[in-house]
Design a protein around this nucleic acid. Structure first.
Length: 221
DNA sequence: TGCCAGGCCGGGT
DNA sequence: ACCCGGCATGGC
């Protein structure tokens, strides 16, 4: 498939999804810190379970870097239990907070200073934290820092696979490049595009039901 | 009732 | 550079 076809298809997907479902208003979190917490908690986990964990954190007044940092890893694990993998994820949240406070101090501006680094440096820094991989880092870049970075997830890969735009062996970077080399680097559009893909994946499709009637893209997912 | 959900790490080849 | 087992809850 030639480059212009890919470009047109990616653009058509976006327009079809947006036309049928409208703006999704992501990320579903109130603050930048909450976005980061949600990004870690939702790793291989349904958002419904993440919401329960976030509600627990809110009830415990633990949704600020300082308050969460003050919790023991055991207390934190107890609060995020509904999100699954709670021991691992408690460790990952702690790893992020330890990095934040060690490198940017304990002042109220520490998160703001981290998130104002240049995009490529920030991405590498996030990836260096144990528990933050490519998708989590890019979710933070796009949804917490507002950078024009395309977020790739399992739904994205399935969409491209089922439309024959990539092969089974396609890596995260391959898929991200496909979007970023063929679309304008517009954070608002990348925001909606990823959110729309997830919306369709969640509401209209199943992993073992490749073809789904009612899907805005016809054969999508 | 098993399968799946908005991944990532660590150890092994 | 891949490949794989482990991590865990809740909804359908």
């Amino acid at each position: 498939m030639v480059q212009d076809d890919v470009r047109g298809v990616l653009k058509d997907f976006y327009e079809s999804l947006y036309a049928s479902l409208g703006p999704q208003g992501w990320w579903p979190g109130r603050t930048r810190f909450e976005v980061i917490v949600g990004a870690i908690l939702t790793q291989n986990t349904s958002w419904a379970n993440v919401e329960k964990a976030v509600a627990n954190l809110r009830r415990a007044r633990a949704l600020s870097p300082r308050r969460m940092h003050a919790l023991s890893i055991h207390e934190l694990a107890g609060l995020i239990r509904p999100a699954g993998y709670f021991n691992i994820k408690a460790k990952r949240l702690k790893a992020f907070l330890n990095h934040l406070f060690d490198s940017y101090g304990d002042g109220p501006e520490n998160l703001k200073r981290l998130l104002s680094r240049r995009t490529d440096a920030l991405r590498r820094e996030l990836l260096s934290i144990n528990g933050i991989g490519p998708e989590t880092a890019d979710s933070i870049l796009l949804y917490a820092a507002g950078r024009p970075v395309f977020v790739v997830d399992a739904y994205t890969k399935r969409m491209l696979l089922r439309h024959g735009l990539v092969g089974e062996g396609a890596a995260y970077q391959d898929i991200q490049r496909l979007f970023m080399e063929n679309l304008p680097h517009d954070a608002g559009m990348f925001n909606e595009y990823h959110a729309l893909i997830v919306r369709v994946g969640k509401d209209y499709c199943r992993a073992k039901k490749p073809l789904c009637d009612r899907c805005p893209l016809g054969r999508f997912l």
